[in-house]
């Protein structure tokens, strides 16, 4: 029932089934897939690496935050795949169930934004003419995200 990090293909029906509840009328599933083009550059494949124990802890933290912010949400979970992923492979799936749809959409969106801020997982893009860890330390960050907020820091 908890969050998962896997090296196997993600099946969205499985994550969907995990959040179905008799009291929930709305389920949202977000699926992040490997896109062929980023900024006009053709990706051949990606490699994902995780600090697994911390990543799982942060994924569970995000689920807890959702249940605090949207108390009506019945269940939420997420799964992230690591290792080598080909174009259209699923990197992440997030499922949220709720009695009504606004909560299900909003909580799901919140979850993916938070993943991109504070879950220690990294991707390396492989192109025909090279490769690069995205969000890396050479000042070539591609996202304004990728950085935890002040409130996420322990003293």
């Amino acid at each position: 029932m908890g969050c998962t990090i896997t090296r196997d293909p993600i099946k969205i029906d499985e994550i969907y089934q995990q959040v179905v509840r008799r009291e929930a009328g709305a389920v949202t599933v977000f699926v992040g897939t490997v896109r062929e083009l980023t900024h006009g550059k053709k990706t051949l494949y990606l490699e994902y690496e995780a600090y697994e124990s911390m990543a799982l802890k942060k994924m569970e933290q995000i689920i807890d935050e959702i249940k605090q912010k949207w108390p009506a949400v019945k269940q939420a979970t997420m799964i992230h795949r690591i290792g080598r992923l080909e174009i259209t492979d699923i990197a992440i799936a997030i499922a949220v169930s709720s009695p009504h749809r606004p909560d299900a959409y909003e909580a799901n969106r919140y979850a993916i934004e938070r993943v991109k801020e504070l879950v220690p997982i990294w991707k390396k893009e492989h192109w025909e003419d090279g490769e690069k860890w995205i969000g890396n330390q050479q000042g070539t960050k591609e996202y304004t995200a990728g950085k935890p907020e002040e409130s996420d820091l322990l003293e």
Binding site: G32, Y51, E117, I121, K123, Y143, D152, L154, E155
Partner: peptide, 30 residues
């Protein structure tokens, strides 16, 4: 970022013996 025992840590945190330290580049999962 510096993570101490799987939590992002502020600059003034004092590291103790046995703490698990990790360097966390900007994340790019999802």
């Amino acid at each position: 970022m510096v993570a101490v025992n799987e939590e992002f840590s502020k600059d003034d945190r004092v590291i103790k013996k046995g703490d698990v330290i990790a360097l966390i580049p900007p994340v790019s999962g999802g």
